[in-house]
Design a protein around this nucleic acid. Structure first.
Length: 524
RNA sequence: GGGCCCGUAGCUCAGUGGCAGAGCAGUGGACUUUUAAUCCAUCGGUCCUCGGUUCGAAUCCGAGCGGGCUCACCA
């Protein structure tokens, strides 16, 4: 009868039985009325109902409410029952009495997880809980699968990520993180809009995945019979908009990098990039200080936050140190004294850092920074003036062409943001893209590709500008105090489970055939 | 990708070579102010998968799958 319900992990008798019982209750509900009405009433949320009762001086039978939500607990005592009803913002207790309800017995058809619409008046129980004395009620959604344990919740981390909806039902902390993330993104957006930045959207599907050093995902457009890459950054299109005359633009968007998955890395993550004409990287640094302080104040109500054993202060100004000085301070290496790969590799080896075969000067520097400097940058710290070799899109320092006007902001030992005085000399840009292209053909999969269309764009003139990139997920991590990136991403990328198939639905066999036919049509 | 740890009922977990267990949820019963309601009874298992050792494997061994932590690369 119900062969179309699968457990998703192969048939398991007892789970099937639970579903079977709930299906039978659904049938009984449907035979009496609708268990899935399209329209429901609601006069108060749970929190509003409590508030209204308090505001009315806690007089019983005075405050009439209609509330809706999910049943999360049932305490049935023969001729009376208490149910907990939860909505997005809170929970309220319901009291059902046999002598007050014709349909009291129909509570047998209600399971944990069902949604109810309930009308009644608010009172306070002997035990002190504000409660709705139910005068009428109905099921507005019958659930077929049981919820996680009402007391222990859902603690299996894999289940929490794969079935985040259960995590959100069971774990208050997961809800908090999701709310905080939303507030962080809203605050960031408001900050830029308030400063007259134009919010734009640029292509995810691109001919060249440029603007960062990372391996892209490849996809295919059927009608054009053409491969496309998923973007790895927002940079090159936003700069085209500077050429087009916009002076302040930003985008908050998902980018995709075809790299390892870990608690610090998800293949798709949210990047914010902004570009401001006639600003330089010092201006951008000051703006970022204001931004982070603003977001922290807005979301947390303070510019200090506790993250594990550390108390982080986001009150401007942040520490500033040059790349060269930071390396000198933490390793004793003066990069100006080791301008050749051979010399630098030698001092790296002396400190136990073994660069990859054929590593370039910049790559060795990067390894030294990652090993000795970055982990120590707990309080927000700007590292200024990067080696040109590592920064093909940033403007050179006038007094030292081996260094560019670029900074990265670190906190808690990892990178939060990255900014340049943007390179707008098309001749220099063309040369540096050519260098990257040479590296790429030399086997460096993360080297940038030359983007001719972009070069043509800036040959029309791009104004001097300061650009910024922020890892939004990491800002959320910072603001929530979470250690794992997967806790701040609602649906983190997971491996495919072995033998897992999409849940089947009625008529699946026929639908599948139609889909196949449709595909054939498209490919012709 | 390397190292370490984990995978037992819908959920949370015991069980480390000898009959597959508990609490919650479910089902039946008692109970008209409970709140992890309580009490009685009861249903529920591919012990992740495959192979091996053994008279006998959830337990020991090997391989695989999935997950967590960690190291390396990346934001």
């Amino acid at each position: 009868m119900r062969t179309w319900i699968t457990t998703g992990r192969g048939a398991m008798a007892s789970e099937d039985e639970l579903i079977e019982q709930r299906l039978a209750k659904r049938e009984r509900l449907l035979s009496m009325s609708d268990a899935y009405p399209a329209r429901v009433s609601r006069t108060h949320t749970a929190a509003e109902a409590v508030r209204a009762f308090l505001d009315a001086g806690e007089v019983e039978n005075q405050v009439a409410v209609t509330v809706v939500g999910r049943v999360t607990a049932q305490r049935v005592m023969g001729k009376a029952a208490f149910l907990d009803l939860r909505d997005q913002g809170g929970r309220i207790q319901l009291h059902f009495r046999r002598d007050a309800l014709d349909d009291f017995e129909h509570l047998d058809l209600v399971d944990l997880g069902d949604f109810l619409e309930v009308t009644g008046s608010v009172f306070r129980t002997r035990m002190g809980e504000v409660t709705v004395a139910v005068a009428s009620w109905r099921v507005i959604t019958k659930a077929l699968r049981p919820l996680p344990d009402k007391f222990h919740g859902l603690s299996d981390i894999e289940a929490r990520y794969r079935q985040r909806y259960l995590d959100l039902i069971a774990n208050e902390r997961s809800r908090e993180i999701a709310f905080t993330r939303s507030r962080v993104v809203s605050a960031i957006r408001r900050f830029f809009l308030d400063r007259d930045f134009l919010e734009v959207e640029t292509p995810v599907l691109q001919d060249h995945a440029g603007g960062a050093a990372a391996r892209p995902f490849l996809t295919h457009h059927n009608a054009l019979d053409r491969d496309l890459y998923l973007r790895i950054s927002l940079e090159l299109h936003l700069k085209r908009l500077l050429v087009g005359g916009f002076e302040r633009v930003f985008e908050i968007g998902r980018v995709f990098r075809n790299e390892g998955i870990s608690y610090r890395h998800n293949p798709e993550f949210t990047l914010l990039e902004s570009y401001e004409a006639y600003a330089d990287y010092h201006d951008v640094a000051r703006m970022l200080e204001e931004l982070l302080a603003y977001v922290a104040q807005d979301v947390l109500g303070a510019t200090e936050l506790v993250h594990g054993e550390h108390t982080i202060s986001l009150a401007p100004p942040f520490a500033r140190i040059t790349y060269r000085q930071a390396l000198l301070d933490h390793t004793g290496i003066d990069l100006d004294a080791h301008r050749s790969v051979e010399s630098l590799t030698q001092v790296a080896l002396e400190r136990g850092v073994r660069p990859d075969e054929g590593a370039s000067w910049g790559t060795v520097l990067d390894a030294l920074m990652s090993e000795f400097v970055e982990p120590n940058l707990i309080q927000p710290t700007f590292i200024f003036d990067y080696p040109t070799e590592l920064s093909p899109l940033a403007k050179r320092k006038v007094d030292d062409p081996a260094v560019v006007e670029r900074w990265e902001l670190f906190a808690l030992g990892y990178e939060l943001a990255n900014a340049y005085s943007e390179l707008n000399d098309p001749v220099d840009q063309r040369e540096r893209m050519a260098e990257q292209a040479a590296k790429k053909s030399g086997g460096d999969e993360e080297a940038e590709v030359a983007d001719e269309d972009f070069l043509v764009a800036i040959e029309h003139g791009m104004p001097p500008a300061g650009g910024l990139g922020i890892g939004v997920d990491r800002v959320v991590q910072l603001m929530t105090g979470e250690r794992s990136l997967r806790e701040v991403i609602l649906f983190p990328t997971m491996r495919e489970r072995q033998g897992e198939r999409p849940h089947e639905h009625p008529g699946d066999a026929g639908d599948a055939a139609e889909v196949d036919a449709a595909r054939t049509d498209v490919s012709e």
